[in-house]
Design a protein around this nucleic acid. Structure first.
Length: 405
DNA sequence: TCTGGGGTCCTAGGACCC
DNA sequence: TCTGGGGTCCTAGGACCC
């Protein structure tokens, strides 16, 4: 990036070698406020100023994906069960997730970011880190906020600091619709008094564990002996906690990120007792995963199924293959086998299919050719007529039933 | 009050090889 | 009869994030 200082520290002879890197230059975290809700309010002026809750259908299984700040006043939060959101704010506007539309708007926002920074890391549909030269962070943030507001009508909050962690935390302070800069020297005054749960990377479990040993604030964590943290959380996590509490973060801006896995899962509207019905869903999911895999020009060596029972207990079972696959049928074959041998007793609540160990595309073996040719024809139909046009699942399943008889 | 769906990274044990 | 050390891969689960 702009300037790098490395300090290599040997700790306890040879147990741990730590590298601390200071990167100079400003990091911005741009986060679109209540993104899905903001887009809906933009597209539907009648929703403006009202509590808007986006997620699963009220009354069915599902959670809140995003809600507008008006809804947050009632205590509604992301990831909250829909049933609870309805109770808290029954008069809200409830909307389903319209991901295609949000992706469209997101692309236009990122195009604006592109004009202001050479290095951009897309974190999610509504969040990105930008690297800009040292000293221009604040000015760039103002321009970005102004441009996104003027050109797209959306509020975006921006955190500015010297690394990703502090930029992220600055952004939390900036929300809603603001900007905030945290200098490294501000750590003790601004960040340290906060509870540990506010530190990016500390979730409910780690918070509880820390609280039990009397560590409640980020300041206490920063001053807690690192080797004790390593004993409690393992080397990687222990060091990470210690570094972050002290405001150190060596993660760089990654413009291109390699895809590690592709997965699809479904929670049934009602628990399912019929194994064949689950297998039909599994086949459908395998088809969706295969479609995305091939579209990225990838093949997978590992297939994983996820099975959640009615009592919410969840297991995953995976199998790695000697040769990478990309065909719907090949993925399904492994997933089916894994499901049948591990599914336990009905009813089931959720099934999922995931592929990992990804390789870029290579020559087909004769053995795989037929399945993959069929999958490609199906892809073309889906591209042309939409995802619902054809389901190989029903076709393959009926063949399976014939075999059984 | 029941708890989505898409991911990433880490841990830990076991197999296997040299 | 007691027993190495390092490395890599695989598997399962868990924590966390958006």
């Amino acid at each position: 990036m702009f300037c790098t200082v490395r300090v290599v520290k040997y700790w306890d002879d040879k147990e741990l070698i730590r590298v601390v890197m200071t990167v100079s230059g400003d990091i911005l975290l741009c986060d679109l406020d209540a993104f899905f809700a903001s887009v809906e309010q933009l597209d539907h002026p009648e929703y403006r100023g009202k509590p808007v809750i986006i997620g699963g259908r009220p009354g069915e299984r599902g959670v809140v994906a995003t809600c507008s700040y008006e809804a947050r006043k009632y205590g509604v939060r992301s990831a909250m069960p829909m049933v609870q959101a309805v109770k808290l704010c029954p008069d809200a506007v409830f909307l389903p997730v319209n991901m295609d539309r949000y992706r469209q708007v997101s692309a236009r926002v990122f195009a604006v970011y592109d004009r202001f920074a050479a290095q951009i890391e897309k974190v999610s549909i509504d969040e990105a880190y930008l690297a800009v030269p040292s000293g221009v962070g604040l000015e760039t943030a103002r321009k970005i906020r102004e441009a996104v507001r003027r050109e797209l009508g959306l509020p975006v909050s921006v955190g500015i600091s010297v690394n990703k962690l502090l930029a992220k935390m600055a952004c939390e302070l900036a929300k809603p619709d603001g900007l905030y800069r945290v200098a490294k020297e501000d750590m003790p005054k601004i960040i340290w008094p906060m509870p540990v749960s506010k530190l990016h990377g500390i979730g409910p479990q780690t918070k509880e564990k820390l609280n039990r040993i009397g560590v409640k604030t980020i300041c206490q964590l920063a001053k807690f002996p690192e080797r004790e943290l390593i004993k409690m959380f393992g080397a990687a996590v222990g060091v990470m906690l210690h570094q972050r509490a002290n405001g150190n973060d060596i993660r760089e801006i990654q413009a291109e990120r390699e895809i590690k896995s592709i997965g699809e899962e479904t929670t049934f509207p009602k628990d399912v007792y019929d194994q064949d019905a689950v297998l039909t869903t599994l086949m459908d999911l395998a088809g969706q995963v295969g479609y995305r895999l091939r579209h990225k020009g990838l093949k997978a060596r590992t297939v994983t199924v996820k099975i959640r029972s009615a009592d919410f207990s969840t297991i995953t079972r995976s199998q790695s293959l000697s040769a990478a696959v990309e065909g719907d049928g090949a993925i399904y074959k492994v997933a089916r086998e894994l499901f049948v041998t591990n599914c336990g007793q009905p009813p089931w609540r959720l099934v999922g299919v995931q592929v990992s160990n990804l390789d870029s595309y290579e020559q087909l073996s004769l053995f795989q050719e037929k399945d993959e040719k069929v999958s490609r024809v199906v892809d073309k139909l889906k591209d042309k007529y939409g995802m619902g046009v054809i389901k190989r699942g029903s076709l393959l399943l009926s063949e399976e039933r014939k075999k059984k008889q």
